[in-house]
């Protein structure tokens, strides 16, 4: 018999490290005479799109074309330390440091523009390739011309931005306190079909509503959402790390199975944008939030289909048949007696 069900699952994720662990980033930026900029940041491009994201933020903040940005990342011989790439912190921490580097560079640029335009530097805005008096738009100079002017006059053409979200620590005995700089949010919905004869669970539909704060690059956010959900699906249903007497028995991709294109639905990304005033242009990370709710979402859909709950991973066909009482469970199960709640 094949039964269908729909389930939902949610999560929150404390972004960054918390607990007084160092959580900072530094970005350097240099203005060339032709108005192009070079960005140095010590964070790693893993494939998530960090280089692109930082370049977009810099282009926006300086009001220049994205194509005029170039970035060098993660090289102790060239870049400043930007902290690790983990804890979904890159957009939030490394992104903010890039904005601060731009603002540091804009100070001497605005000073020169103010001199040339005979206007108050504080009233100048950088947008659409121009540096312009926001009260008197006719007073403007192109970013490119200003860049040339900066070099010609020997002005400071390098900016640096440091951003830290290092928190205090929580109380050692109660963990009470401000644990994280901000939090990320996501909810997912799955529709599954369970074959009660074979134990096979097929995910027919997976929709992921993930709060990006502000999607700096929507396609990259979608990529995180789609890829994260598929990693979560693998964790939920397929990826069976068999450890016997300390040995990882199936440590090969022929025996440790990760999802192929044939194992997954077309994940539907639903980007939610709840502006975070502490993030760059309101943005925060999505990599982990997009991964976390998938397994329980699928399990709740299975419960909706069967009336029986999966409280273990992975729900492989064999383990599903055990759950359904069609295969004998031979493993000794941990019981409530094995896990007393510690004293208050």
């Amino acid at each position: 018999m094949k039964l269908r069900g729909i389930g939902v699952g949610s999560m929150m994720y404390g972004l960054g490290y918390g607990f007084a662990r160092p959580d900072f980033s530094t970005t350097d930026i240099e203005l060339a005479p032709d108005g192009t900029v070079t960005i140095w940041n010590g964070a790693s491009e893993l494939g998530q799109g960090l280089q692109t994201l930082l370049c977009q933020l810099v282009a926006e903040e300086l009001g220049i074309p994205y194509e005029d940005t170039f970035i060098i990342t993660a090289d102790t011989g060239r870049t400043p330390d930007a902290g690790p790439v983990s804890a979904s912190r890159s957009t939030y921490v490394q992104g903010n440091s890039a904005l601060k580097a731009c603002r540091d560079l804009k100070k001497p640029m605005a000073e020169l523009a103010g001199e040339l335009l005979k206007t108050d530097p504080d009233q100048l805005i950088f947008k659409k390739g121009l540096v312009q008096d926001q009260n008197e738009p006719s007073r403007s100079i192109s970013f490119t011309n200003l860049a040339g002017g900066m070099h010609q006059r020997g002005r400071r053409v390098r900016g640096s931005g440091y951003h830290s979200i290092t928190t205090g620590d929580v109380d050692k005995e109660t963990s009470q306190g401000d644990a994280y700089a901000t939090y990320a949010w996501a909810s997912q919905l799955a529709e599954v079909e369970v074959d009660t004869e074979t134990g096979q669970v097929t995910v027919l539909r997976l929709a992921s509503a993930t709060d990006a704060g502000k999607a700096i690059n929507p396609k990259m956010v979608e990529g995180q959402i789609e890829g994260g959900a598929v990693q979560g699906l693998g964790f939920a249903l397929m990826e069976d790390m068999k450890i016997e007497q300390g040995e990882f028995k199936n440590a090969k991709l022929s025996t440790y199975l990760i999802p192929t294109a044939a194992d997954v639905p077309m994940v539907e990304p639903l980007i939610v944008e709840v502006y975070d005033p502490t993030g760059p242009y309101g943005a925060k990370g999505v990599a982990e939030p997009a991964t976390i709710p998938t397994a329980p979402t699928i399990f709740n859909a299975i419960a909706n289909a069967l009336g029986q709950r999966v409280r273990f991973t992975p729900a492989t066909p064999e383990k599903m048949l055990k759950l359904l009482g069609k295969l004998e469970e031979k493993e000794e199960q941990i019981t409530i007696e094995d896990m007393p709640y510690p004293e208050p």
Binding site: A59, E60, P65, Y66, K127, K214, A215, N217
Partner: peptide, 8 residues
């Protein structure tokens, strides 16, 4: 925005 929010 000119760059932010764009799938460059």
């Amino acid at each position: 925005y000119e760059s932010v929010g764009k799938s460059v």
